[in-house]
Simulated scan of single mutants.
Amino acid sequence: MTYSLSAAEARKLILHAQLLPAAKPAGKSLAATLSAIEHLGYIQIDTISAIQRAHHHTLWNRNPRYQQSQLNELVATGDVFEYWSHAAAYLPMKDYRYTLIRKHAIASGEQRHWYAPDKSLMKSVLRRITEEGPLMAKDFEYKGEKLGEWRSKPAKKALESLFMQGDLMISGRENFHKVYDLSERVLPSHINTSTPSQEEYARYLIRAYLQANGAGNADEIAYLRKNTKPLINTHLRNMVENQELLKIDINDKQYYAFPKSLDLLRKPLARSKLAILSPFDNLLIQRKRMQMLFDFDYLIECYLPEHKRQYGYFSLPILWNGNLVARMDCKADRKTSTLYIRHLAIESSLKNHDGFFEALGNTLPDFMRFNNCQQLQADKTTPASLLPQLIKLTQQ
């Protein structure tokens, strides 16, 4: 049996699964942050600092009481660790064993990450960390030319190779610089370190994706996970046959969901709450999915030459009333404690401008505090006729 959802129902299901807009979490803030990471499965790490970095931004949108120190604290307590999801990410420690598939493939040479491994240098680096304890890339002296696309010194490449194949883990960060240590010294003793079978791995990928996203298909679940789609397809069929999953039709395309996920459709969505999202938010990371299900065609433009940018260097998608309705290019100036809104572009589908600006006005003070800003300046809107409404918010 195949269930059918309208586009609006699908968006509601997805937003509830993504914990957006955030409800005020009960209990301690640190526990709420860990709960969000475990529910979403990963939080992407990014270095761009036009505003607060993406990993902090994504968690702040799920836990309004989030503090930036909490990620370091959760790494230190062994509840969270850094590794690769579809990109560099913080992952729940309880899922550690599912990273071993990639690690073994890299260690065996079956899969390559960024760098061709320098086995001799890797052995030397590993020996130093074994003998001296945790080290950073800067602890390895190198006066030669930095090579490659990322201009990395050889020891940094060796550290990353050892990290990717599982010999090293990140025990913490100092001023955002990674501190590397032996995996056995970082891993909590109770963590399962057995390598999952292919069936276990496929079922984990399916469960994790559908828990965090409400509905999905094999293309989405296998996103940037090489050679996993056939296995995922097989287990999706098996899980439907075993009544673990439902087939769902959305916009004439087949998706899968847990039966219990449809209960979320009976839960009200906080439509009046507005959320200013990171470009690397879990909701947004698969752009084709956003275009198909939210009719939102998004491209992050910081990687484009300035003359090719339509919306701005770092435009932030805005969620309101169950839809992605705008994008706002922002810059936090730490010296002057000013949040600059370079460009607020409203989607043509949004007609209730007054309601939107009221919701934006309610959200901006919290967003400014999150970015350690006390002043707000607005430069441009699209349509241009809406600039007076935005400027009015800067004067409140």
Rank of each mutant, 00 (worst) to 15 (best):
I232V: 13
V80I: 08
N238K: 12
L319D: 01
R203I: 14
F280K: 03
S4V: 14
I346V: 11
L344Q: 00
R207C: 14
F356W: 02
L135M: 13
P317Y: 02
V186H: 00
M122Y: 03
L5N: 02
H307T: 15
T99K: 01
A270D: 13
A218C: 08
F356E: 04
I170P: 03
Q286L: 10
R225N: 11
P317D: 03
N282H: 09
V125S: 00
Q374H: 14
E358K: 14
R128W: 01
E358M: 09
T338H: 07
C302P: 06
R309I: 01
R97L: 00
A50K: 07
F294A: 01
I248C: 09
H307N: 11
E110A: 12
R289L: 03
E301S: 05
N175K: 14
D281W: 04
E241K: 15
F140K: 07
K229A: 14
M136G: 12
L264D: 04
K331D: 10
N233A: 11
L91G: 04
R128I: 01
E38C: 08
N282R: 10
L224I: 09
R173Q: 11
I37F: 09
A88V: 03
P230L: 06
Y298F: 13
E200P: 06
R112H: 13
L284R: 00
L30S: 11
L299F: 06
Y83H: 11
G41D: 01
S171Q: 11
L121C: 03
N321D: 09
E149H: 12
R309C: 01
L376E: 07
S69Y: 05
H353L: 12
G166M: 00
N192M: 12
S337L: 15
F140W: 13
H343K: 06
I221A: 07
M328N: 02
A215Y: 08
D329R: 01
I300H: 06
S161Y: 06
F294P: 00
N63H: 10
K288C: 08
M164V: 02
Y83K: 07
L393F: 10
D333E: 14
R334E: 13
P64L: 01
F294V: 01
S171D: 07
G27L: 06
I101F: 10
H307I: 11
N72T: 06
T234V: 12
L339I: 02
T363I: 08
K123D: 09
K308W: 10
T363Y: 08
A7I: 12
H177W: 15
K253F: 10
E82G: 06
L393T: 09
L162I: 02
E220T: 07
W150F: 05
N238Q: 15
A359D: 02
V75S: 03
I43K: 01
S35V: 03
S197K: 06
Y83M: 05
P134V: 10
P259L: 07
F367H: 04
S385A: 15
I101N: 03
E141N: 14
D181G: 08
I346Y: 07
L59C: 04
L126P: 01
Q243W: 12
L360W: 03
Y255L: 09
L324I: 04
I206C: 05
K119L: 12
K94A: 07
S124Y: 14
A384M: 08
D366S: 15
Y303V: 06
H16L: 11
A88S: 07
P268E: 03
Y115P: 00
S49N: 15
S108R: 11
G144V: 10
G27S: 08
A137R: 08
Y313K: 11
L386T: 10
D249W: 05
